[in-house]
Design a protein around this nucleic acid. Structure first.
Lengths: 333, 333
DNA sequence: CTGTTAGCGCGTTCAC
DNA sequence: GTGAACGCGCTAACAG
């Protein structure tokens, strides 16, 4: 409960001097500094950040904007990992990370800019926003420093952090090819999502470079739902029994695909090789254990926070940062 | 960027009147209120919470204190669910939820009270603190309103939210008994943890009430680690081949136990029935799917936030709240 | 009903 | 080296 005023009084100096002493200003005698600091230590003094930010007209708070979170989602872990990565970095830099959870409805009630003003937020990291969400447009227009995870938005105050989806998928497909597969199908996620587009781009590019024909009936969209992936996979295999490998744009969909393949009486990896994407915990516990592209979400969160803080400090940053992924080969291929 | 001052100026009234109008004070004419509110709406005015809290000498911020979080932990999801539950409730009550992540080292550097002062935190929810952590003692002594999840700490400013572990385990054991099992073993977690104590109490109580002998060699401690559970289970079964049912104090340990049982050439549930605890996502994906006590972590988070806010408002609350669990019977028994 | 004064806890000129 | 004065954005107590 000790305030700067208390410490100043105890030290027999003005608040100004006490403040300067604690902030290590050059124009305060060592003797005074020592005294003030001792007292501060003794009484567990800690500056009130809100008051400090108010006075400095600055803020050390950044927001993590999450849209439509469902705690039951398999991606709960993904969000959590991003959160931890960002949080840890912020802690190191004496920044505060505030979670802002919204949904499409809430976004109509209050602008992001208002939320940020209300909470003194200097910049935001966004994850999970869908095209069409009100914030989506607002961010592009506003001048709020913003890092978009997995979404490409262009602008002076905007930057992106993501996994190199194109390269990752190319690596997957090439590896499948090298194992002898020639009929490689693709269960993609929600068509509108940016990541889906890039993953599909990687798939098509890989096939072209390998001089394999692109069979449009080999591409299905299961919107990142496990059950939908089950259905689409059944469909796929019934229509194209010659398929020997399936790449899914998420592990959860791969799990759905796995069930479908088994239910069709085919063996994984014996008759159909299966690859997922994300590297969620479940992928390591299925049987067979899933070969997948492990994304480093914690690092994504860290890099996002790092870039955002740089932007807030008016330092230049790259428009897009790619965080290394890890193609982890396990039992399903 | 519009401030109260701006709105007041535009409306041609004093800041005070503008403030009163926006906060719906009775002693402001409807006419003035309307005018001020219109302007506020027009310019997207939102009060700066930090400044408001400063002036009111109150805070609408509560902290969620998390210790030693590892994003790779299976309990990442648990923490996340608690977080969402608490967050949603806070959002409804216009409270802010701030995550405070610490570890045993950090706890030595800065007291919890300091962290809270720094961030204007009115009260905290703690989860995952271990006995011996510096904060543990501090919380008992300090006067900070505090809700401990899964930990019993007594005190005026303290309360607990948890699952009724004793009852849950009794239900598990009784059910196993009703299925004909008489040799029921127990893989417990970290002996020092509060939840472990209560789960063990439930186990012993159930056996007593069923008039089954308590065989101490049926009780092992695997500290909530999957690998350790694997070893302890192997040990258990080798020493006591007559065991036909094993209850594990966490799903993750149950997964380790499952591997052990299979590796020993026994079938689940054919030769050994297996029950877990927690209801993590993995429990629903193992084969066989795990029978388990599903804890409602989101609700735990919600109740924790609700109680804490009541305490902050000086309302009376129960010392302990039990959040309903769900004994979910699946394939492993 | 409205405005003046004062202050929350802190940082920043700018004289002294 | 030091401190008085002022302001950050807002609210509370009190006059008018």
């Amino acid at each position: 409960m000790a305030s700067l005023k208390d410490i100043a009084k105890l030290a027999g100096v003005s608040e100004t001097t006490a403040s300067k002493a604690l902030n290590n200003y050059a124009d305060v005698s060592e003797e005074t500094k020592r005294k003030v600091r001792e007292l501060a230590e003794k009484y567990d003094y800690t500056p009130n950040m809100a008051a400090r930010n108010l006075a400095r007209k600055k803020s050390n708070i950044i927001g993590l904007v999450l849209s439509d979170i469902r705690e039951t989602d398999s991606n709960g872990n993904i969000i959590f990992r991003i959160l931890i990565g960002a949080k840890n970095f912020c802690a190191d830099k004496d920044f505060e990370l505030l979670i802002i959870s919204t949904d499409s409805k809430k976004q109509k009630d209050k602008k992001l800019a208002q939320l940020c003003r209300e909470r003194q937020i200097a910049g935001v990291i966004i994850y999970g926003l869908k095209p069409g969400d009100p914030y989506f447009e607002e961010i592009a227009k506003a001048k709020l420093p913003c890092i978009a995870v997995d979404i490409r938005i262009k602008g002076e105050h905007l930057a992106t952090v993501t996994t190199d989806n194109v390269a990752a998928v190319q690596e997957v497909v090439s590896h499948l090819y090298s194992k002898g597969h020639r009929n490689i199908a693709f269960i993609n996620g929600l068509k509108q999502a940016d990541v889906s587009k890039y993953r599909e781009r990687g798939y098509r590019k890989a096939l072209r470079e390998l001089e394999l024909p692109i069979n449009e009936s080999y591409i299905k969209y299961a919107d990142y739902y496990e059950d939908m992936a089950y259905e689409k996979t059944s469909e796929l295999i019934n229509e194209n029994p010659e398929v020997t490998a399936i790449f899914c744009a998420s592990d959860l969909m791969a799990l759905g695909a796995l069930r479908a393949i088994k239910d069709l009486g085919k063996a994984v990896p014996g008759q159909v090789a299966l690859v997922g994407f994300d590297g969620i915990q479940l992928s390591d516990y299925s049987s067979p254990r899933l070969t997948t592209v492990v994304q480093d979400f914690k690092e994504i969160g860290r890099v996002a926070a790092e870039k955002l803080i740089k932007m807030i400090n008016n330092e230049a940053v790259e428009a897009v940062d790619y965080v290394p992924y890890n193609f982890r080969i396990r039992e399903s291929i």
